[in-house]
Structures are given as structure tokens and as C-alpha cells.
């Protein structure tokens, strides 16, 4: 039997075909787990994210409902994994920071280093981020890895609300340029 495409599997999942979900899980386990781990920097949290993503997929409603307009299926899976990670990060932050009796808003946020440094190994992404100016590193960290809102980013960086979008876009662009420049080269340290 020919290998089923993601879309074929997704259609079967909608009919509550368990083996289709299992196949899709096997196909994406490593990619999504690695991504969730990189986002949350916590193995337990990354597993919770996996749970959340596949429960949503199985339910097939709301965030777990895929339509072609959302682009490639694999990109869409990464998007809902990123959203689930951000969601979990926010919940954890509320519990750990907001509730420890201090006013977290005035607190300095963990620097770019702290958030990314703890990751097990350096990868191409980390190397590329390192080459960016501090301000762009901070944008990537706050926007991409912490998933903050526009208002939060503006407050943390003390910049006008209206400039957030432009700065995020610039940082992502620069990151992309570095990634493409170094594409395929594995850095050994």
C-alpha cells in the first residue's frame, strides 16, 4: 500500500480512525516534540504540548481544524504546536511569576541568553540568533519564543506600540538572511 499523505490521514482522523492518528503521530513526533522542547525549554512541558496538540487534532474542532487555506499541513501543525507552547508558557508564567507576591511587570525579563542558553545544545538557529544585534535578538526572543503580545513587547522594550510590528519583521528578516547564508553548515563547538 502506498504511503498515505498527511491530508489523507487527516481526513481519516476526522472519521475517528485511531490508526490514522497513530501514523500521523509517528510521522511528526520528533519534529513537534523537538520544536515544543525548544519553545518551552522543559521536557515535561514539551510533552504536555504534544498532548494538547494531538488532543486538538483528534477533536478536529477550533484550533484543531485544518483547512487548506492555512497552508501546508506540516506548517499548520507547527503553528498549533507553537501556539500550544506559548499558551503553556503563559500559564506557567502566571503561576510562577505573577503569584510569587511581586509585581512582575516591573521586573526585568529573563534576557535572551537565559531563555535560549539553557537549551541542551547549540544549533544553527542559536548561532544565527547570536549574530544579530541585541535589539533584534530581543525581538526574536520576546515575539517568537515567548509569544508575547504587541503591547507586552512594547512595554518590555519601552518602544511605541506602532513600531513593534516593523521591528519584529526586521528581526525575522535578518535572522532569515543569516540562516540562509549558513544553511546546511553544521557548527561544531
Amino acid at each position: 500500500m502506498a504511503k498515505q499523505t498527511d491530508l489523507e490521514l487527516y481526513e481519516l482522523i476526522k472519521t475517528k480512525d485511531k490508526s490514522a492518528l497513530e501514523t500521523l503521530y509517528s510521522r511528526y513526533e520528533k519534529l513537534l516534540y523537538s520544536f515544543a522542547y525548544r519553545m518551552t525549554n522543559d521536557k515535561q512541558a514539551a510533552e504536555e504540548v504534544m498532548q494538547d496538540v494531538f488532543v486538538k487534532l483528534w477533536r478536529g474542532r477550533g484550533a484543531g481544524h485544518y483547512v487548506k487555506e492555512r497552508g501546508k499541513f506540516s506548517s499548520w501543525l507547527l503553528t498549533i504546536t507553537r501556539n500550544a507552547s506559548i499558551d503553556l508558557l503563559r500559564k506557567k508564567k502566571v503561576q510562577e511569576v505573577e503569584w510569587d507576591g511581586r509585581d512582575s511587570l516591573n521586573e526585568d525579563l529573563p534576557g535572551v541568553e537565559q531563555v535560549i542558553e539553557d537549551k541542551e545544545e547549540r544549533d544553527q538557529l542559536r548561532n544565527a540568533i547570536d549574530t544579530l544585534p541585541d535589539e533584534q535578538q530581543r525581538m526574536i526572543c520576546l515575539f517568537y519564543f515567548q509569544g508575547l503580545s504587541q503591547r507586552e513587547i512594547a512595554e518590555k522594550c519601552d518602544i511605541p506600540l506602532g513600531t513593534v510590528k516593523g521591528r519584529v519583521r526586521l528581526a525575522l528578516k535578518k535572522l532569515r538572511e543569516h540562516l540562509e547564508k549558513e544553511g546546511g553548515i553544521v557548527h561544531e563547538r
Partner: peptide, 12 residues
Amino acid sequence: LMGDIPSYMNEV
């Protein structure tokens, strides 16, 4: 711009 980022992460 964001789409490619995960592919530059190490696998865990």
C-alpha cells in the same frame, strides 16, 4: 519568515 525557523533547530 517564521515558517523555516523550526527546521534549523536541533532534534531532541
